[in-house]
Design a protein around this nucleic acid. Structure first.
Length: 471
DNA sequence: TTTTGAGTTGTTCGA
DNA sequence: GTCGAACAACTCAAA
């Protein structure tokens, strides 16, 4: 018996339920990845994430070759390509990991009409649809969702599926080659692959390194390396979410000190957020098209192209926003706190439709996932499930002072601020005209003046939301 | 059905 | 400088 293992966003051999289902049913496995032209042509498909995916596929191929197998790559419409592959191999079934993303669901529906496709849960620890209220309705608020999620029997180390020692793939089949991507800063920041993901997880969990132990107190500091930086790996399944949750639960339990326990709890909470947004998207696929709350679909945005472009390129005149955007466009990753500050600034200070920002993040983030990205933007804009209160408008100067107290983050990404004294580093326009040349940063010449006045913008957005929520 | 308490991540103002 | 209240009103979840 032969089975096709259809790889999509589960680029790993460890703890892979779709692969396990395939090997359980068949002794011959055909691993395939289908490059879908509809996805490659999507405006949300950016070159950085694509390069990360290609690098991940090469690594997966190498990992498979070490086990007697290899990855077959096909380019074309998935149902058609899988159909051809099934003819070529005589496979009796196709196994793949279920994905709640609406495009994936319709694609898989089309494949199922023609082929014996078996979808296996594994993208999340608890299937999106498994965490429900007493009457069977889905949750729309995070805290009760997380309580119900935690109340379900959680995975333990014994539940993790080991990496297969050998995979029998005797076929010599045509395989498309992946485009070569030149080495970049990206490759240095986030090397793709399962081994890298495992090594990062190990370092994060290491007691001596204090990654997870310091997480609760340091994760908001944009100038420090206080987060796991595992999001790109979770996005493509180079790391199993189940393995991450098992690690978090292990770190949260036992006789550990209070700080370490709190750190593990905080990290577990972030993993639950990921599952929350996948669940939300599963139940409300229409969220990708607009605000969850109908009352907030008629806000009048300024939608000023020039301020949007200033935001995209990191030229708003607010250092923490600009540093965040440059970190994103240069590395494909942005610190979580910086995401909130940058997103809040676009929506609340510039009054630009949150969907513009959502698309920009989709294009640039290695870890961009439709569920989490949309959920985060709706949360920031205050138009989604469990939305932020209307009055939560982040002040970029205060956020900078609190989460980048010495200005190391903004100086790293904005070299023009290198000589600005720390008291002014988050508001350089407050330097006197005589100090600016001494600091090597004349506002308006070396670094932009603020694109809007925050106090004025705050009043404007409150008015716009009040009007937008009127019937 | 009605009621009640709560809702990731804050800011501003005035005493 | 510090502190507490105010900031729309609404929806969700559970009793």
């Amino acid at each position: 018996m032969t089975a096709i293992w259809w790889v999509r966003r589960d680029l790993r051999l460890a703890d892979n339920h779709a692969l396990q289902a395939a090997t359980g049913a068949s002794d011959c496995i055909v691993p395939v990845f289908v490059l879908d032209p509809a996805l490659l042509a999507s405006p949300d498909c950016g070159p950085k994430r694509l390069a990360f995916l290609f690098a991940g596929l090469r690594t997966l191929d190498a990992d498979l070759r070490a086990r007697g197998s290899h990855l077959i790559v096909r380019h074309g419409e998935p149902a058609a390509e899988l159909s051809v592959l099934r003819e070529e191999t005589g496979a009796s079934a196709i196994y793949a990991e279920a994905d709640p993303w609406p495009y994936a669901r319709s694609r898989d529906g089309r494949v199922s009409e023609q082929l014996p496709l078996h979808l296996v849960d594994g993208l999340t620890v608890h299937a999106p649809g498994a965490v429900l209220r007493a009457g069977g309705a889905p949750y729309a608020v995070f805290t009760p969702f997380s309580r119900a999620w935690r109340a379900l029997p959680g995975p333990t180390a014994r539940d993790l599926v080991p990496t297969p020692a050998y995979l029998n793939t005797p076929f010599e089949l045509p395989s498309s080659s992946l485009p070569e991507v030149p080495p970049s800063q990206l490759e240095a920041s986030f090397p793709a692959g399962e081994a890298e993901a495992q090594s990062r997880l190990g370092a994060f969990l290491d007691v001596v390194m204090a990654g997870i132990a310091g997480y609760a107190s340091l994760r908001d500091r944009v100038d420090l390396d206080g987060t796991s930086r595992l999001s790109p790996y979770l996005r493509f399944g180079m790391l199993s979410a189940r393995q991450a949750v098992v690690a978090a639960l292990q770190s949260a339990g036992g006789n550990r000190d209070e700080v370490a326990r709190r750190g593990a709890e905080a990290w577990l909470n972030e993993l639950i957020w990921r599952e929350f947004y996948m669940s939300i998207l599963h139940h409300h696929p229409d969220m990708l098209n607009g605000a969850f709350r109908p009352a907030l679909r008629s806000i009048t945005w300024s939608n000023d192209r020039s301020v949007f472009e200033a935001w995209c390129s990191g030229r708003t005149g607010y250092p923490i926003v600009d540093a965040a955007m440059r970190q994103l466009t240069q590395t494909g990753w942005m610190h979580n706190r910086a995401r909130m500050v940058a997103a809040s600034f676009l929506v609340k200070d510039l009054l630009v439709d949150w969907r513009w920002g959502e698309h920009f993040f989709m294009q640039h983030l290695l870890d961009a996932d439709p569920a989490a990205n949309n959920g985060g933007w709706q949360w920031t804009a205050g138009v989604g499930t469990d939305a932020a209160p209307y009055f939560r408008i982040l002040n970029p100067v205060l956020q900078g002072g609190r989460f980048d107290p010495f200005g190391a983050f903004v100086r790293r990404w904005l070299p023009e601020l290198a000589g600005v004294p720390t008291p002014f580093v988050h508001e350089p326009w407050k330097m006197t005209l005589s100090l600016q040349p001494q600091a090597g940063c004349v506002v308006g010449r070396d670094y932009p003046a603020p694109i809007v006045d925050h106090a004025w913008a705050r009043a404007r957005v409150l008015t716009a939301y009040r009007r937008g929520s009127e019937p």
